[in-house]
């Protein structure tokens, strides 16, 4: 059966096309493109992606406006039903603002916008999204953000670490994130938010293909589920 995925586009999203290209490349089926003002998601989705960018111009706080857009009510409902949701960069910010993921993404500690490849350590290779990797594996994925400094209080950090919900950590902390956290899972494991851009590392021409295993692993895990 064809893989049914959707990429949500908010006003100001700018990695939605890259995400769609990556999903089509890996699955062979073009994802549905869904606009933020749409009231409904397509039926029977296998995968939802929230792309990077600057939704609503980062007004108020990064991701805050998008988290309250009409389509996000549907995304939250789908996530609660167990549909896998991947949020990258601004998508991660939206997921925290929508309270699907813990914590918040603050201004980088350096105050600088960072755009380069970073080394990541795969902390948990048992999740749907990370099953294409090996635990402890070191990979290289690009980041491009100003607000990627993951913050949560100590109690929350202890809890998410204890529950194995840290998917990726920075090998060298580039933005001030608490405990070097680059990617976080929800409790059920079907929602992942990460600042690095796996969709920008799926073709040798991108300079690396370490993002490929995320999409391939997720698709394989879903096919076997």
């Amino acid at each position: 059966m064809a893989f049914r995925s959707a990429v949500i586009t908010f006003p100001g999203s700018n990695c939605d096309r890259d995400m769609a290209v990556a999903l089509e490349q890996v699955s062979g089926t073009a994802p549905f493109r869904v606009w933020h003002g749409d009231a409904e998601l397509p039926d029977g989705l296998d995968f939802i992606a929230l792309p990077g960018g600057f939704s609503y111009g980062d007004y108020l706080r990064s991701g805050a406006m998008a988290a309250n857009s009409p389509i996000m009510r549907e995304v939250v409902r789908a996530a609660d039903r167990g549909v896998p949701v991947l949020g990258v960069c601004n998508g991660f910010q939206v997921l925290t603002e929508a309270r699907l993921l813990p914590g918040a993404l603050m201004r980088n500690a350096s105050q600088h916008f960072i755009c380069r490849n970073v080394g990541l350590k795969v902390e948990n290779a048992d999740s749907l999204f990370t099953s294409g990797y090996v635990g402890g594996q070191e990979i290289s994925i690009p980041v491009a953000h100003h607000d990627g400094n993951f913050f949560a209080d100590e109690e929350t950090l202890d809890r998410i670490e204890g529950e194995g919900r840290v998917a990726f950590r920075y090998i060298e902390n580039c933005n001030g994130s608490r405990r070097d956290i680059a990617g976080v899972l929800n409790k059920a494991g079907n929602v992942l938010g990460m600042m690095p851009h796996p969709e920008r590392a799926v073709d040798a021409a991108h300079g690396g293909t370490d993002g490929l295993m995320l999409f391939e692993g997720a698709m394989k895990a879903l096919a076997n589920a």
């Binding site: 706080r61 805050a64 309250n68 813990p102 949560a152």
Partner: peptide
Amino acid sequence: EKLLANTVI
């Protein structure tokens, strides 16, 4: 609570 502040931070 819902929009103007993010009470996490």
